[in-house]
Design a protein around this nucleic acid. Structure first.
Lengths: 218, 218
DNA sequence: TATGTTTGGTGACTTGGTCACAGACGCGCG
DNA sequence: CGCGCGTCTGTGACCAAGTCACCAAACATA
């Protein structure tokens, strides 16, 4: 029940506010691959992720995709509240990448908490700031960065220190907002240079240092 | 003094909260071309624009620019508070496009107001939501939209119904995050098709309907 | 008028996106 | 097993966009 103590930014919240928060919110477990919010689906809760990750992505009419950011444990999907309040059309969707444990804070409780606790306000504004800067960095990347560098960075990010990444070219294209053919050609070049080896749905990072070196070429 | 009454979202604020807000905040006038915030400049105030416009843009190390959004009258530059709270490096800068009348709400007052007034909270969250959706649309544009369509849209937007736009090719490139040469070539094509005529620093929209038609080609 | 700066134009080249299609692999089913 | 079928990857041709180098016209002002 006492989930708030596990979360950076909420663990030292005022006792009264914390009681309200934990009493009024509901803990859920969602299987992998679930669309937790998206166009048409009105979200009436602030979602705080405890375990797993939610991928937030944009899908254009032409079918092309780009991943905007991920919501990791201890983070909150603040977009839902913002977009709800503004009654704007939701142009992004959230999909669970793994099984996810999360807490749903009802809109009403959220509003009460904001008035009640300055720690909670800080938590919420930090979340906004984090997403904003994520989006700023993404815009810079998409507008100005070469695709080979972005791909090298993404491979290192997705591998998380492990020596390989289990994704298809199509999935990588959706991550970076480009076309599959572009990924195929770049991976071929990486392979030629000995940076990776690859099989169907699997990319092995043979020379992570070399990739890091490429990724650092700003 | 009673500036809050002029602002959509603050005009029906609770009387007590409104008194606090107007007592503690300071009205300023800033000349055109002033950098009101940017890398290194710590902002300690929430800024609400009353008259004029602030352009928020990103400048990359390579010197290329892109305009992220504009803060118009009645709107607030919420980014400053967010980035201040997160203590993140500020990767964007704000420049006044015209002479600007604005209100500076100190950080302390901002925090008090958030706790005091639900109307003020709504105002703030609406502002966040607005910026977020702006950034989402920008990402979609940059990632997926053809440059000729983006340029046509931008010309119509900047002309604001008037028949012409007084900007250089370089400025348009900075708006859209591309290179001057690309703008020059596209404008040449527009000219060839009779959509515009142009002189040094001036573009005349001869066929606004034609441009709108092009811009609508999603 | 002379001179330097800003603005715009152009060609050659590289990178990235689109389209069409083909081969390779995995898997179920007769 | 052999056969289809869907998914994944490779490839060539072409177009769109960004980069680089350079030039010419317009303007500012001494």
């Amino acid at each position: 029940m006492s989930w708030a103590s596990e979360i950076e930014g909420l663990n030292r919240i005022e006792p009264g506010a914390r009681a309200t928060l934990e009493r009024d919110s509901r803990r859920v477990t969602v299987p992998a691959g679930t669309v937790v919010f998206g166009p048409g689906a009105q979200a009436d809760n602030l979602i705080v992720v405890l375990r797993g990750a939610v991928r937030v992505q944009h899908v254009s009419e032409s079918g092309r995709q780009i991943v905007l950011y991920r919501v990791n444990p201890g983070e909150t999907c603040i977009m839902t509240t913002a977009c709800l309040m503004a009654h704007e059309a939701y142009s992004a969707e959230g999909v669970t990448e793994t099984e996810v444990d999360a807490v749903m804070v009802p809109r009403r409780t959220f509003d009460t908490m904001i008035g009640l606790s300055s720690d909670f306000r800080t938590f919420v504004f930090d979340a906004y700031a984090q997403r904003m800067t994520d989006l700023f960095l993404l815009i810079e990347d998409v507008a100005f960065q070469r695709m080979d560098i972005r791909l090298a960075q993404k491979l290192l990010e997705l591998s998380k220190g492990a020596g390989s990444v289990g994704t298809t070219h199509q999935q990588l294209a959706a991550e970076l907002g480009t076309a599959r053919e572009v990924i195929s050609r770049l991976l071929q070049e990486f392979r030629r240079r000995g940076l990776i080896t690859s099989a169907r749905g699997e990319i092995v990072l043979n020379d992570a240092a070399g990739l890091r070196n490429l990724a650092a070429t700003d």
